[in-house]
Each structure stands twice: as C-alpha cells, then as structure tokens.
C-alpha cells in the first residue's frame, strides 16, 4: 500500500442526470466480451434529464411522451423520481 492518493472530500450524492452524463458518455471504453449496445446515449440522457429534472414541469410544457412510451410506465417514473 504505497500509492494511496489524497482522499477526495466526500461529496453529497450527485443528481442522476449528472451521474448518467458521466457513466454513459464518459469513462474509459474497454471493448468487453459481451457487448451491451445501450440506447443512443443522447436520446437516453435527454429522456432521463426530462424525467429526473421535473415531471411536473415537463407536463406543464405539454411534454408527456412517456405516457405513451411502453418502457416508461407511471410506476417507473415514480421509481426514478424517488
């Protein structure tokens, strides 16, 4: 154990949109044996930002596509908001 670095201060839990921006768009790419082709990253993060940011606000603006999106039941939205 010779190579410990300065411990970074503990940050509060980051919001999901920021986490997704990093884990989906950034980070080291190593070709794995099992390929996971994630949904188009931009589309995905846009979808997620929308959900994470504010469902109420989105509804005010008349954006309600998820109500017709089979992958996004209202239960799912509640879980994401939790």
């Amino acid at each position: 154990m010779t190579e410990l670095t300065t411990r970074a201060p503990q940050a509060p839990a980051p919001n999901l949109a920021d986490v997704l921006e990093r884990v989906l768009d950034k980070g080291m790419v190593i070709a794995g044996d099992i390929r996971i082709n994630l949904l188009d990253v931009e589309l995905l993060t846009i979808k997620l930002r929308l959900l994470v940011a504010s469902v109420e606000r989105a509804k005010e603006m008349g954006i309600d596509w998820w109500e017709h999106d089979p992958t996004l039941s209202s239960r799912a939205i509640r879980e994401v908001e939790r």
């Binding site: 190579e3 670095t5 970074a8 999901l16 990093r22 884990v23 989906l24 980070g27 080291m28 794995g32």
Partner: peptide, 25 residues
C-alpha cells in the same frame, strides 16, 4: 448507473482510479 457510480466513487476515495463506462462486461 447509481451502483456503478457508487463503486467508482468508493474506489476513487482510496486510490487513483480510471472509471470505466457503464456495462463493461
């Protein structure tokens, strides 16, 4: 994503870390 990030952050608190992209399998 949360689980991935939690492990990366946990490791980074102790040593130099290169985070991998989600779902490197």
């Amino acid at each position: 994503a949360r689980a991935h990030h939690a492990v990366v952050a946990g490791v980074a608190a102790h040593t130099v870390t290169l985070p991998c992209r989600l779902a490197t399998i």
